[in-house]
Design a protein around this nucleic acid. Structure first.
Lengths: 115, 115
DNA sequence: TTGATATATTCCGAAACAGGAATATACGAT
DNA sequence: ATCGTATATTCCTGTTTCGGAATATATCAA
């Protein structure tokens, strides 16, 4: 089997840096396509295609407004990523560091056993 | 240009579900390859290859122990993902929802203007 | 209708991955 | 040295992707 489709899940969709930048822009509010084009300096067809991927995983929604199409972020769909990575947060937090070094200390205090 | 390499950054490396599961396992502590193989029911060569990708982006580290190779998670490298997605957190939080509806109310109270 | 602006879609080509199978390497035990 | 276990690497192939250019669609204006 080949690589996982970019529209398979949110993780894959967000793997592409330009798509992350687009999402970052949309965090400030809905924008027409050409606004994204100008701000990110990405050719318009590419922006439309990236938006298509983001729409496929429901990370953005569209609203027609005249001849413009206003895209807005559907942030809740980022939550699976947030939740997944949050499960690892304790592993790099300061408190955990202290706990780890504490355990190290305990281990050092154990009586040396012959191997 | 073709697709972004999976070893290009942490986002791409983590886009693959099996790699996320491997990282989840390693969150409990270091493990030899065959332990991952047995727990996740993934053929050994594939596990080795996935571990190779994770190693390339420094998400895991290896330690030789006899004929085993003990892999452990380098959780700090997940932090860029955490930080990136945390920037969106307010957009789906309850407090933000209240703020948003508050703003909606304010907008409704504005005097209707002729277009 | 014709034209202009905004956006989407299609076709192309060059990567690059993920799985499968087979094989190679590394290390320990006898 | 030889065998067995643990792990890594190679080769192959189907599939997907991204970018680029060109083109198509949609909507508004005159």
């Amino acid at each position: 089997m080949p690589r996982l489709a970019t529209t398979a899940d949110v993780f894959s969709a967000v793997a592409e840096p330009r798509r992350r930048r687009i999402l970052g822009l949309l965090a400030d509010g809905e924008r027409p396509v050409n606004d994204i084009v100008r701000r990110l300096r990405i050719p318009q067809p590419q922006v439309s295609k990236h938006l298509g991927v983001l729409r496929a995983v429901d990370l953005v929604t569209v609203r027609g407004d005249g001849q413009q199409r206003l895209y807005s972020l559907n942030a809740i769909r980022l939550r699976p990523i947030h939740d997944w990575v949050a499960g690892f947060e304790r592993l790099w937090n300061e408190r955990f560091d202290r706990l780890a070094s504490c355990l190290d200390d305990l281990q050092k205090k154990e009586p040396p056993r012959e191997s």
